[in-house]
């Protein structure tokens, strides 16, 4: 029978060392890991609980931006007024992961490293151009969030590496974001498709910068540059939104499965990108 051990290190270095052992799995909120343990989909020899590392839980403002401890729960994110004001889309993505109960535990790092294409926490982070600080046996490095998932269930992290914190850049004026997803139920469901849109506006209300990221329509979350480009210079006129939707749909390469057909996912991705763009635009102070 497999022997399992549990460790809750207090320093990142100690954690990296423990995680370098074969069969070690990091534990953050645990809302995916415990389901996998129970179903037998994973049988690690060591669980490394990252929550007792200093800085793993909590949010601090730094140079106008935010540093989010990787194991910070969705509930804590949702209660941070400053973060909500600056990055409402990032927070709503994180807050859509599971129920209130799951929100009490689930973290952005877990959501990202579980590497589900449908992860609700990820598209808005990608659209936000967020980065993560990674600790590993060879020290620290910083990488864009979108570089972490490598396919369903796979990440680009090397053995022993784990995410210590996320960094969200400082916000210029007239900037906001939004995340929308579609699920058959109103809650407690996995996204059939999801769209995060991050906008910065000029003073005249035209879009200065736009980033669009889509979930559940490809093996990893997609940053669709053409979709963002379709909005730049516009006030989200109907033609601009149609171009956004078309660009978003053109980037989709989904699978058909029990949660939705490829055709349906693609179509919905366009609808959601359009709707999320309108919400982000209004939040940024734009008037259509």
């Amino acid at each position: 029978m497999s022997q399992l051990a549990y460790l809750a290190p207090s320093s990142p270095e100690e954690a990296a060392k423990a995680l370098a052992a074969s069969g070690a799995r990091p534990l953050s909120g645990g809302t995916d890991l415990l389901v996998q343990l129970r179903s037998g989909r994973t049988s690690p020899s060591l669980i490394v609980d990252l929550k007792r590392i200093a800085g793993a839980v909590g949010i601090r403002e730094e140079a106008g931006g935010f540093v989010i401890g990787a194991s910070t729960s969705g509930a804590v994110l949702g209660e941070h007024a400053g973060l909500l004001r600056a990055w409402p889309g990032v927070v709503e993505g994180a807050n859509l992961i599971g129920s209130t109960q799951v929100q009490g535990r689930a973290s952005l790092a877990g959501n990202l490293c579980n590497a589900s294409p449908a992860a609700d926490g990820v598209p808005a982070l990608v659209a936000a151009r967020a980065t993560c600080v990674i600790v590993g046996p060879n020290g620290r490095r910083e990488a864009p969030v979108e570089s972490i998932p490598a396919g369903p269930g796979k990440t680009s992290l090397a053995p022993g590496e784990f995410i210590l914190e996320f960094r969200l850049p400082a916000r210029p004026p007239r900037a906001s974001d939004a995340y929308l997803r579609l699920t058959p139920r109103t809650e407690m469901d996995i996204a059939v498709a999801g769209a995060g849109v991050n906008l910065v506006l000029h003073e005249d209300g035209t879009v200065a910068e736009a980033h669009v990221a889509l979930g559940a329509v490809a093996p990893t979350v997609l940053h669709v540059e053409a979709a963002g480009a379709a909005l730049v210079g516009t006030r989200l006129e109907d033609e601009a939104l149609a171009a956004l939707a078309a660009a978003a749909q053109a980037a989709c390469k989904p699978i058909s499965d029990k949660r939705g057909t490829a055709e349906y996912r693609t179509r919905i991705a366009g609808v959601l990108a359009r709707r999320a763009a309108v919400i982000a635009y209004q939040r940024a102070g734009g008037q259509r």
């Binding site: 645990g30 809302t31 669980i47 129920s99 209130t100």
Partner: peptide
């Protein structure tokens, strides 16, 4: 747990 609603099936006892 510590003021947060959680599913006790999704948390290790050791935590």
């Amino acid at each position: 747990v510590d003021g947060r609603l959680v599913c006790s099936c999704l948390m290790l006892a050791a935590e």
